[in-house]
């Protein structure tokens, strides 16, 4: 019982440390709109939209590769309109907004 807990603490700590350090040194300045949209998407990573995971779709939406959020089948309609509104209103680093239909 005690050995298991010690082994798990060490393993958890080592992996947590690894991820923490990676997160700090490997921070990539990502356009925060992408993160915001990824959080709003359902995160099933089901790939139904053809992109691998919701972060892929969010990136495509932000840099204009995709014009409408409806590509994400499982998300609810009100989520789609919220995303479209958010993207059409908040300007990106270069100041432009994108035009996206729900």
């Amino acid at each position: 019982m005690v050995t298991t807990i010690i082994v798990m603490i060490i393993l958890g700590a080592v992996l947590g440390l690894g991820l923490g350090v990676a997160d700090k040194f490997l921070k990539v300045e990502v356009d925060e709109r992408v993160e915001k949209v990824t959080a709003m998407l359902p995160n099933y990573n089901c790939g139904g939209c053809g992109y691998a995971g919701c972060s892929g779709l969010a990136e495509a939406l932000v840099n204009g590769e995709v014009a409408s959020v409806s590509l994400c089948k499982p998300s609810k309609p009100e989520v789609k309109t919220a995303i479209a509104e958010y993207l059409n209103t908040t300007p990106g680093p270069d100041g432009t907004c994108c035009k996206v239909k729900p």
């Binding site: 958890g12 992996l15 947590g16 991820l19």
Partner: peptide, 14 residues
């Protein structure tokens, strides 16, 4: 942040 992540994952794993 790193400390927080390490401790949290260690506690959950334990």
């Amino acid at each position: 942040k790193i400390l927080h992540l390490t401790i949290f994952l260690a506690v959950v794993a334990a």
